[in-house]
Structures are given as C-alpha cells and as structure tokens.
Nucleic acid binder design. Sequence first.
DNA 1: TTGAAAGCGTTACCAG
DNA 2: CTGGTAACGCTTTCAA
Lengths: 349, 349
Amino acid sequence: MPTRSSGHGSPTIGTVAAEAGVSRATVSRAFSQPHRLKPETVERVLEVARRLGYAVNPMAKALSTGRSGNLALIVPDIANPFFPPMIRAVEQRADTAGYAVFLGHTDEDPAREDLLITRFAKQVDGFVIASSRMIETEIRAHAERRPVVLINRDVARIPRVLIDTTSGVTQAVTHLAELGHRQIAYLGGPSRSWSDGQRRRTVKRVGERAGLSVAMLPGRRASYESGREAVPAILATGVTAVIAFDDLLAHGVLTGLAERDIDVPGQFSVIGCDDVLAAQTYPPLTTVSSRAAEAGTAAVEMLASRLGSDVTGADDRLTLDTSLVVRATTTTAPRPTRKTRTTSATPTG
Amino acid sequence: MPTRSSGHGSPTIGTVAAEAGVSRATVSRAFSQPHRLKPETVERVLEVARRLGYAVNPMAKALSTGRSGNLALIVPDIANPFFPPMIRAVEQRADTAGYAVFLGHTDEDPAREDLLITRFAKQVDGFVIASSRMIETEIRAHAERRPVVLINRDVARIPRVLIDTTSGVTQAVTHLAELGHRQIAYLGGPSRSWSDGQRRRTVKRVGERAGLSVAMLPGRRASYESGREAVPAILATGVTAVIAFDDLLAHGVLTGLAERDIDVPGQFSVIGCDDVLAAQTYPPLTTVSSRAAEAGTAAVEMLASRLGSDVTGADDRLTLDTSLVVRATTTTAPRPTRKTRTTSATPTG
DNA sequence: TTGAAAGCGTTACCAG
DNA sequence: CTGGTAACGCTTTCAA
C-alpha cells in the first residue's frame, strides 16, 4: 500500500506535503529554493515540517541531485600528532561549508589508500588527500573521477596545498652551520613521503653549499621509537648535529641520546620538523614550524570552490612557507675531542 | 530520453544488465545474493561488471534498503592524544565490518554534539559517541532514533564501554600513601566528563580512607597549558603530590614545576592518567594505563552486533580495567622542610 | 532461476 | 507561484 503519509517512521516530504496541503514539489522548494515560493507558503510548510520533526533525507537528495554533501579526508596516520590539527581544521571548514566528512586512515599503505578512496568515491563530492603515498598514476586516476585536493604532495595539474619546508629547513641547516657544526646528518622519514623528499634534498643542497659534510640516514616510520632506535646509526656517522624528518623522530633521538649520557645541546644538537611537540620535550626542541591546520582549511576551500562552480580553473598550487623555531636543543658545535668512527654503512658527504 | 545504458558517466546496474543480457534484478542479485543465481550467470555478470568498472552505488542502495553502511564516530577533541588511537581502532574495526565512518569533532560543546548527531542521523546506521558531554535526556533521544554505543559515559540501558579508571586510580592513591605522602591533590579535567567524575570520586574516597588529606582542584580543559597554569594553585594547597585528570595536564604540571625549580620526584610527585605520553615526558611519567583503542574496537563490535540482529539485548555494559604504571615521577614524600608557599610570579633558576 | 515493476525520498523539468 | 511527474540507482516482492 503506497501510502506516502503514513505515521510511523520519520516523516518524509510526502507526510509534510499532505499535512500542509501542498504538493511534494512545494515542500522540496520550501527547503531548497524558498525564494521561488510565496512567503506565506514557505512559512506554513516550514512550520508543519518543524512540528512533524521532518528533516531532508540527505541520501535521497544525493541520489536525485548527484551531490552528496560529503567529503572524504584521507590521512596516512592519525596517530602522528601532525594530523589531528589538520583533521580538526578540515572538519571545521567543511562543516561551515555544509559538508560532512568521512575519515580514512591508510596506515601508510598505498594499496589501502587506493581501496579506501574507491570505496568512498560514490559517496562523496570530493577528496582531501593528505600526504598521499600512492603513485601519481593512481592519484590522477582518482582525480579524474572526483575532485581531489592534495596536501603535501605535488602532482602537476591537481589542486594541492604544500607546506613548504624548504625555507624552514634551509634556516635550520644555516643555523647549524653558523653554530660551527661541520658534519650534520638528516634522519629520514617515510620513504614515499613528498615532504621527506623535499627536506632531504634541502638539507643536502644547503648543507653542501655551506661546506658541511652531510650524512643521509634512511627513511623510517615517523615515530618516537624509530627515533630512539636510530641513535646508534646517527652517532656512527660522526656528526655533531642531526635534523630529523619530524618532531617525533627528533624526540626519540633526544631520548636515545640521553640514554647514552650525551648532553643535548652541549655535545650534540638536534632539530625537528613540524613543531607538533612545541616546548613539550626536554630540552625544548628546536624545530621547523608547520602549518597543518592552515593547510587543511585551505584544502577544503579549494575543494569547495571547485565543487561550487565547475571551474576547470588554473593549476592551483598553494604553498605555505615555514621557518625555524629556535628553542633549546641546538648550540655551538662541541670541539672535536674524541674521534667518532663510522663502522660500516652510511658514507658522508 | 530515459536511456538506462548510456555510455558516459559511471556505469549503473542498467549498463551492466544490458551488456550482460540480463535484467537489472539479476545484476543486483549477482552482487547481493549470488547463491540465488545460476553460478554461470553470476560469473558472467561479475565479469561484465568488472570490465565496465561497475561498482554498486552505496547511496542508491541505502535509499532502497534503509541501511547506509556508514557509522559516525563523535569525539570531543581530536587534538587530545587520548583519541587518535581510539579513532584509529574504530575506523579499522568498522572497515572490516564493511562500514565507512564519519568523524565528528564537537570541541567539547554539547550543543555542537547534538547538532552533529542530528545532521549525521539520516546518513548512518549507528553512532559511537566517545566521552559525550550531552545530558542524558539528549543522549537518550538520539539513541531512540539510531543505535548508539557510548564510550566513557555511563547511561543505563544504552550500550556502553567504560574504561574503568577506578582500579588504576585506586592504585595511584595507594601508591602515594605508601610513599609517605599525607596531603595530595586531584587536578580535575573537563567538568562534564564522566571519566573526570569517576577519577575525582575515587581519589577522594580512597585518599580519605587511607587517612590522607586530599585537595580537589577544579576541572579545566585537558591540555598541556592548563596543567602548566594550574601549578600555582596546586602549590597553594601545600600538598606533596598531585594526581592529574590526564597525562596532558600532568605533563603541563611537570613543566610548571620545573619552571619553579621544584624537583620531580624529589620534592614533588606527579601522576597522570591515560598513559598517552608513555615515557616521553621528562622525567618519565607515572600514570594510569588506558585502553582507548580496545574501547573503540569493542564499541564498534557492540554496534555491529546490534545492527546485525535486532537484538533488543540485555543492558550491555562493558568495563575495561586499568592499572598504575609506575615510572619516574613518584617517590617518597619529601620531609616537611620549608612550608611551600605560593608567591605569584614564576621565578626561574 | 530470472524478470517485471513497485517503491525508497528527493529534485527538477514542464505545464498551467 | 505551484502541481504533476519523470528520473536518480538499487532492492525486493510477486510471478512466471
């Protein structure tokens, strides 16, 4: 029995229509295009709707309009303190733009990332993909189906917002050079990370230009433990300072160093990246600022503008500059007392 | 022109049906009830679908079946490190159960929480609400519309998983008593927090039973800064040890104490809660373990079981016990030398 | 085992 | 300014 206005479940547009004595089309308009209706009609419909506790069913609406009003945010690792502020910002900005957001956690796995995006695809109007680990081809493929805005991943012709750590890392290297350090190391992060590539290249380039010998340590998971475990390798290179991919690693290094009774910054200088630990380490960590929240906000704005008007727009690429925040883990290089020896791997320079 | 099998947009069930020479109903069945179809038919349909890149449209499916395959996770504060592991767990468990998850961030605001839930309602099959700040009436109202599982909020007859810190906090108080402390304080967290209430009561009860004098400090936002700022108030009470609502606050207290040259644990003992900072503070924080991830997983499981079968089931209430993790911020009470006095400013060494 | 057709709740085009 | 009526893409009786 196809009764539109039954009284059991949540009220539908039909229920309201019947009760208000108008057509379903009118009820629909009362919500989506009130200006095309006589004010008193709108008022009456809305009143009835309120009384009945009616609310538009987003899925039905989506099916009809082709726009879901949903976005998906994909991140590699929620547990990394770099992301929560970004997630928060995306959520907030999306919310004010009327979007609800799905959260996808890829656990740094490109395959999982690909899968998640595919699963979300039909249910969202667009994606914000942070620190994507997928290969360009895959990213492009997805971007062709749905609007995509990338964060910290530079793929031509795909809207993206990049936290440019070149500036901050350059300052970091220069800072160390000025303090008299002659040998420094870069402790890498996730290998597929665009940010890591950028930082790695910057340290190398700027370091060598400043006449420093710089050791590159292989990338690893960005975590406190990884940093702690990397200390022996770092020391083996004989450097007097290290710049880590991020604060988490740097924090771990601080601990590893402390465990070996190596004084920071007295005997060794450490610099982090992202400034997520603020002054919460001991000693307070010198680091490169980040702008995760801003990036999130900007990404949603880009996405929203794409969704609003079908602008095939220019090649959107927003970069956010960073800078060095000097705290207490860096100081002048120790005089070359004992000669630290490299054992096997990791040549310098 | 109502052509079902046009060749432009993403393929629909009609496209596949036409291409495979079967009815739309058959295609639908090939995906949802393959066993009710001749194996070779299923195979052919699936093959065609794959070739065409067809994927079921979840919204259309949802509209038809009334189940969206989505869940919503509501949290008060993504930035608090207590939540990311939980979010991660929820996401993961939901994923394996075939659900996608919306994330809602309420920023500790009950009104916003209420609003978010309402907005999600029509689009999800159920909610996991963590540390809800809403009043019981509101929670009940929502729970009547959609299945709800609460985390760290104890509302009768609503499925909930509670991280029971009673055990851990009891151990904490006892630990301090055994170390000879006679006066301790509890530094409160968010006022609407169920966990805070539980911890507060436990500290008070167990403390007094052990013959300690216990000072209750008003609740505040669970953050590093709040903890740091609370130090003067703590010192003003003349206690020799403090148990903080969570690790963030405790960490802040550590800093505030250090700024005043008060040695921890030599002159003052500090205990946190949730164990989210692990050994990452200086000194490593004695704290009460937490089980955020487990709670998230359990919550989704409860929800999924409710969704699966319409069990009006018993009064589900799962509690997860905790215990004290002793690290390095607690030790025997200092002898009553100088009478600790609060001045005003922040003298540093 | 398969097909026809009636919904699911909205929107949007076309009349009036 | 408002109503009728096809879609939107899929599921699900009901028949065959």
